[in-house]
Every structure is written in C-alpha cells, then in structure tokens.
C-alpha cells in the first residue's frame, strides 16, 4: 500500500482508532500517544496487510495488540472515572449522544479484555472473529459476552 492510500485509510478509520484508544487511556496525552503509536505500528506493519480482509479489521487487531503492548510497557494509568459512569439514564428524552457517552463510560469500567470483546461485538464481529483477534476460545467469548452484557445493563440501569 502506498503512503497516500495509507493516509486515506487512516483518515477513514480515525474514529475507530480514537474510540479504541479512548477505552484504555484516561489522560488526553496518553490518548494521543496511543493513537500515534497505532498509526506508527500500522505503517510499520502495512506489508502484512494483504487485502484479504477489510483494512478496518486488520487495523482493529493491530490497534488492540498495540494498545495492550503499550499499556504493559508504560504502565499507563487505566481509565477510572467512577463518579461519572454510574449516572443512570433516567431521562427518556436524553439525547442519543448522551446515551452513547454513558455506554462508552460504562465500557471503560470493564476489564481490559472485556473492553476489547464488547467493542468488537458492538462493531459487528462474530464470536469466531473475536476469538481469532483476541486469542480467546470462541465458546469462552460467548460466555464472556453474556456476562459482559449483564454487567453493562446493570451499569446503565
């Protein structure tokens, strides 16, 4: 893939990168670092993208691997914001944006692995794909998803 095409792909998928990185970084600078590192690693490993899967799928896997790797190396402060995630959605007229924020904050409170699993699930990946990307047994993915959804519904009540 040539540089111009790569940049275009990154631009097309920047929301995905930011969304995933934001699940694992609380500090705005750490967030930028994670995004930067994902872009850098993507460029470094672009030859491994052969086009047999969607670029976003390839990037998703790379982003999660990169984020987990960086967090292990740099011991980034995990996202903790208990004062905001547990605000219940009691106003039925709340905007979708607000509900989206609540969902995002609730997901941030999950374990690192669970965050990856539910984000993949919500982005439409099947259990076998999630298993392939995360390295978790597909049956176990199903079990974990069931538990994660219950946990999320409790948080969002």
């Amino acid at each position: 893939m040539k540089e111009a095409e790569f940049i275009q792909q990154i631009k097309s998928n920047q929301g995905l990168i930011r969304k995933l990185a934001g699940l694992y970084a609380s500090d705005p600078e750490d967030l930028k670092d994670l995004c930067q590192e994902v872009i850098y690693q993507a460029w470094k490993g672009i030859d491994s993208f052969r086009g047999d899967a969607k670029f976003s799928t390839w990037l998703y896997r790379l982003a999660l691997n990169t984020i987990f790797s960086i967090k292990r190396k740099k011991n980034l402060v995990d996202y903790k914001d208990p004062s905001t995630y547990n605000h219940p959605i009691v106003d039925e007229s709340a905007t979708n944006r607000l509900q989206s924020e609540y969902l995002y904050k609730a997901i941030r409170q999950l374990s690192e692995t669970d965050r990856a699993i539910i984000s993949l699930h919500l982005d439409g990946y099947g259990n076998s794909e999630i298993a392939d990307i995360t390295g978790i047994n597909a049956n176990h993915v199903g079990v974990k998803l069931y538990r994660i959804k219950n946990e999320l519904s409790q948080k969002l009540k």
Partner: peptide, 16 residues
C-alpha cells in the same frame, strides 16, 4: 450508540 463514539472527540489526523 457505540458507533456514534467514532464521531466524537475531534480529529486525530493532526497526528499525521
């Protein structure tokens, strides 16, 4: 709702 998160938070293309 999850997808909507991709449209929040501003641009990261400045990192490019």
């Amino acid at each position: 709702l999850w997808k909507q998160q991709e449209n929040t938070g501003g641009e990261i293309t400045d990192l490019l």
